[in-house]
Design a protein around this nucleic acid. Sequence first.
DNA 1: AGGCTGTCTTGATGTTCTTCGAATCAGAGA
DNA 2: TCTCTGATTCGAAGAACATCAAGACAGCCT
Lengths: 125, 125
Amino acid sequence: MSKQSPALSLTDLNAGVPCCAPITEQRIPSETAAALAPAFKALGDPVRLQLMSMIASAPTGEICVCDLTPAFDLSGPTISHHLKTLREAGLVDAERRGTWVYYRARPVIMRQLASLLGVGSPANT
Amino acid sequence: MSKQSPALSLTDLNAGVPCCAPITEQRIPSETAAALAPAFKALGDPVRLQLMSMIASAPTGEICVCDLTPAFDLSGPTISHHLKTLREAGLVDAERRGTWVYYRARPVIMRQLASLLGVGSPANT
DNA sequence: AGGCTGTCTTGATGTTCTTCGAATCAGAGA
DNA sequence: TCTCTGATTCGAAGAACATCAAGACAGCCT
């Protein structure tokens, strides 16, 4: 990723940028919109939203793909594709341990999205 | 299966349902996912996210389409289409006054989405 | 009434997305 | 090593989406 990317990435936002005031307070610049829209888009599918929910609410903080797949009437490849979308949106992390792959949520990003929607995360300018 | 509406709508959620705990706390049912996903999807486009931001941050609480359109390098019909998407997702309301049409944000829904993402919005109900 | 301006709808086109089956890759165990 | 299971990638088909030009509609002004 050695790029002069003119577009911000979610990673950039995580790095330093405190990620923008709520949209109720001031208009977000187009770069920020371009950086965050993919995360919202990833949540914009019922299957992925439910996957995200299962991952984020896992009691141990992580959940096995083998527990996710049977919860839907969809093929394995399809679930895998949706998980990849969530991964590429920066919403989850995956780790392989032996035979199985475990997914974990990334709460920082979800909190960024939430605060962008204007819930007074109190510590924001 | 008569009219036991299998699918929840955003309006339903607004009506009575307190709209679900954060996804970090418990897995959301598939009906809730189906009801909320369209709202996230609507925010999943950079143009719409910026439109939403301009509408939600308008000083008077509302903003004219004639102020939105010139802010983008897109045709009038395209902006109109995106606004319709936001309207159908329940995120904004439109009102015509004379020649111009004004858009206004619906903060309740944004707060629902935000709290779903797990920001402990203290007052949930 | 007639024309003008602002907004929305319609129709068309190229792109992106969802989904599946088949093939492939990664580890565990015999 | 060979095979079996779990997960991902590949390739393809159909649906949904973003965008525009052209046309239709709504309300002002002369």
